[in-house]
Design a binder for these strands. Structure first.
Lengths: 225, 225
DNA sequence: TTTTAAATATGATAATTGTCATGTTTTATC
DNA sequence: GATAAAACATGACAATTATCATATTTAAAA
């Protein structure tokens, strides 16, 4: 099992601000896990009792609406932490976390990290900055949801995934999502998402081979209104 | 000018976690301001250079969408801070702040408070908890925007204002909003907001006298789907 | 108070999006 | 590889919401 104090993944999140001693202590009680694609890490209402540090893979954070549809609120990739909000506010999770592909994660128990948060100002300030970033992002999503069309939102989602998570060697988006996932990000019916994607394809902005999507004309996609 | 160390407003925000010495220092350089209804405290893109502590009044935080419409993202009332996110991430504001009625605020310069944030773990932990609360709230709004109808969102907005900000002696909502404001909270056209409110009135769930709205049947309003 | 501007209200119509039905393709499992 | 299940796709139609036009009311200014 790898040691936190030597792990390079922490450079991408607030764990980098822990002291060497703190890291050694955490390393001793963390758990490494392999999580299969499709597995639910935790559900809405679950008491998480710690944070996950994502070493590899991608995960979606979603919330069930009263109408029975899932809304994807955030996607978490390698380097990021999951469960920070619940840790800080000492509440059960308000989101469900589901692995979108096979994942490697480390689980750090709450008991080992909460004291550091209250004692190490650099660490809590760092987490504060993380959360500030999330909050800004969430505000932007609210505005998009409220004011933009499904067509626009879907185009922006494709661009976001393309630019944030990159592409495979063949140019297809590296994050493989079902049409239902796209609908749940955009906040629309699955059929509507499928229809819009089909239209994008007809217009030559994307190409598809099964679930794999390739952006063919980024500029046109960016110009959609 | 009142002293921070004696001010009771700070009980409602993270400033309560500052030490007496820190408060005295901040008190010496803070500015008290009276802000007239309708005044823009700061605009999108402005460098705020500090935080506002709201001593009285209400303020809306909004963001201009590309289609030219304002989206109200949050309402801030007595006791809360404004500008925390920009302070923490050291960025210009991504939101516009506008007074919804006459306000009393104190402005604390960034230079006086940022060091405390990095040195006083209790203070930063407290602000972290504030931001965690905001983030949870924002996630809920995303889900509502994405999955609920205008009718539902408007009903929930009325209930939210009723329960969070209270009513005047005559039972009308204490926060006075224009129909356009309601539209900008819900994320719809002003005409649509007006239409839905008219329908609520016809159905006996609310009554109106000019801009003043009174909830007449909270249960029916809560049951809207 | 009169005048003017702004906010509220409502109708008509178009555009967007959701729902249900049904067929096709892809993927998983035996 | 055959079979079943899931995911994808598309048509038809209904519901929701936006837009434009135009009154009417309310608030503000002269």
């Amino acid at each position: 099992m790898s040691k936190c104090e030597q792990c390079i993944i922490k450079q991408f999140n607030s764990l980098k601000s822990l002291t060497k001693d703190e890291l050694i202590r955490i390393s001793a009680c963390k758990t490494s896990k392999t999580i299969k694609k499709g597995t639910i890490l935790f559900d809405e209402g679950d008491t998480i009792n710690g944070v996950y540090c994502v070493k590899d893979g991608i995960c979606k954070l979603s919330k069930l609406s009263e109408n029975g549809k899932d809304q994807i609120v955030k996607m978490v990739v390698k380097g990021q932490l999951i469960g920070q909000r619940s840790l800080v506010s000492d509440q059960s999770s308000n989101l469900q976390a589901t692995a979108l592909n096979d994942m490697e994660v480390c689980f750090i128990p709450k008991s080992e990290i909460i004291a550091d948060l209250q004692k190490n100002p650099k660490f809590s300030y760092d987490m504060l900055q993380d959360m500030a970033r999330d909050l800004k992002e969430a505000d932007n999503i609210i505005v998009n949801m409220a004011q933009k069309s499904v067509r626009q939102r879907l185009a922006e989602t494709l661009i976001y995934i393309h630019e944030s998570f990159g592409t495979n060697p063949d140019g297809t988006l590296s994050v493989l999502l079902s049409r239902e996932d796209f609908a749940n990000i955009v906040g629309t019916a699955t059929e509507s998402a499928i229809r819009v994607l089909s239209q994008f394809k007809k217009d030559g902005m994307i190409s598809t081979q099964g679930k794999h999507i390739k952006i063919e004309n980024l500029n046109d996609l960016k110009r959609i209104e």
